[in-house]
């Protein structure tokens, strides 16, 4: 592995830049979700005679997904604290828990999707379901990529041990993970909770 020649200031500046750049990327991702939210807001009631969210969604299941994802965000934070202290075992532990919780979240979400599709409520059925599947599905896709990123990074940490580059990656990853939980807050509120109100 390459050893650092340049002064500390250079790498700190580089980390600052990359962190900022990743933050800007997260902002663009937020804007992309905004379009999906806007479409959902406009089209949510266009069920064309089909069942509405009120008839389809299970609030307890959505609450479970929310609590699981929230907890995974918390454990990711604890993992980051461990990373900053250079504690490889704790990093693998906490992020391992995060990975598992994220995986369970995905399973629950897929279960919901499969149930809908099995009952004939697919994304072809009407505009309301199209926008539901797209909004929630895109979030799920982001979670999937996050898990992939997490898995690869943890594998590298396990093999190579923690170093500053991998800690930087974990920092960006945990930013991504926290951000996904924040988006989920709004999905839970606007898609699931509001289905029973509008």
């Amino acid at each position: 592995m390459e050893t650092e020649h340049e002064p500390k200031g250079h790498e700190a500046a580089s980390d600052d830049r990359v962190g900022f750049g990743f933050w800007v990327y997260l902002m663009t991702d937020l804007l992309m979700f905004t379009v999906l939210f806007a479409c959902f807001a406009v089209l949510r009631n266009n069920t064309f005679g089909g069942p509405t969210g009120r008839e389809l969604f299970s609030l307890p299941s959505a609450l479970a997904e929310t609590l699981i994802l929230l907890t995974s965000s918390f454990t990711a934070g604890l993992g980051m604290l461990a990373a900053r202290l250079g504690n490889k075992r704790q990093v693998l532990g906490w992020f391992g828990v995060t990975f598992l919780l994220g995986f369970v979240f995905l399973v629950l979400e897929l279960k919901e999707f499969v149930t809908f599709v099995y009952d004939g409520n697919t994304w072809h059925s009407n505009a309301s379901l199209s926008s539901f599947f797209t909004l929630v599905g895109t979030h799920g896709l982001h979670i999937t990529f996050g898990l992939l990123w997490m898995g690869v990074t943890l594998a590298f940490i396990w093999k190579r041990g923690l170093d500053s580059h991998l800690v930087r990656k974990l920092t960006l990853l945990s930013l991504f993970w926290h951000f996904l939980d924040i988006v989920w807050i709004f999905i839970f509120t606007v898609v699931y909770l509001m289905a029973f109100l509008v």
């Binding site: 406009v42 266009n46 064309f48 994304w123 059925s125 199209s130 926008s131 797209t134």
Partner: peptide
């Protein structure tokens, strides 16, 4: 603004490929 374009193009793609109904004339699209 480019994220908005990315998202909108994906929605058009979903309409055309996955039979979704964001912007179609039928089944609730707008």
């Amino acid at each position: 603004i480019f994220p908005l374009l990315t998202a909108t193009l994906f929605l058009m793609f979903f309409d055309r490929y996955l039979g979704m109904h964001f912007f179609t004339t039928a089944l609730g699209g707008n």
